[in-house]
Each structure stands twice: as C-alpha cells, then as structure tokens.
C-alpha cells in the first residue's frame, strides 16, 4: 500500500503504517513539503536499515565460515585421536573414559 493517500479535496497526504499490539495503525504525517520531507526521511531510514541488515548478514556468513573451518579441523583431530586410541587397543567405556581393552 502506498504511503501517499489522496484526500477528498484532491491533495496528497503522507502516512506511516506501523504495528501496535498486532494491529496495523496508520499515522497521518502531512501533505506538501512536510509530507515530502517525512517520505525522504523514511526512505533514508529504510535504506540505512537495509544496509545494516546486509552488512550483518555478510558479517554472520563470514563468522560462520571461520567457525566452520575450525569445526572441520576439530572434528578431524577428534577422528584421528579416537582412531589412534582404538588402534592402540583402547575402548570407550559407556561413551566416557577410554580404557585399555583386556586381552582375551
């Protein structure tokens, strides 16, 4: 829905919509220069918010990438450690401590 509303007398009136307790409430700002100014300020605010959201997405993806790199390394070391322990004749007791397997 356009924020510009045509009044009965023919003039354009700038409005803002926001949610209050789950309901959309329309706030009437003004027409003419005042409406134009408010529209520009809102557009600028939206642009700033979109930029911040995009920057945050980029930052989060970068951090996830870094964490993923380390997670991969940690998992491989874990695999290597367990493999070395199993190869050395250890077994894991109830998913906890490692014990030397008794020779049958």
């Amino acid at each position: 829905m356009s924020p510009w509303e045509r009044r009965e007398r023919g003039g354009l009136y700038y409005t803002r919509s926001r949610k209050v307790d789950g309901r959309v409430v329309r706030e009437y700002v003004g027409g003419g220069v005042l409406g134009e100014l408010a529209a520009r300020m809102d557009a600028e605010e939206r642009r700033r918010r979109d930029e911040a959201a995009a920057a945050w997405r980029e930052e989060r993806d970068h951090l996830e990438g870094l964490a993923g790199l380390l997670d991969g390394f940690c998992e491989d070391v874990e695999t290597m450690t367990r493999a070395a322990l199993l190869a050395a004749g250890f077994r894991r007791h109830k998913r906890g401590e490692w014990r030397k397997r008794r020779r049958d």
Binding site: C74, V77, E78, M80, T81, A84, L85, A87, A88, G89, F90, E97, W98, K100
Partner: peptide
C-alpha cells in the same frame, strides 16, 4: 580440546601414530 589433551596424557604414551 583441553579435556582430550589431558585424557591422552593421562592414558600415558601408549598410543601409536
């Protein structure tokens, strides 16, 4: 990671690699 290192040290150097 710290626990795993401590565990390997506790088990002693019986692990081959």
């Amino acid at each position: 990671a710290v626990r795993a290192l401590a565990q390997i040290r506790k088990l002693g150097p019986a692990v081959q690699i």
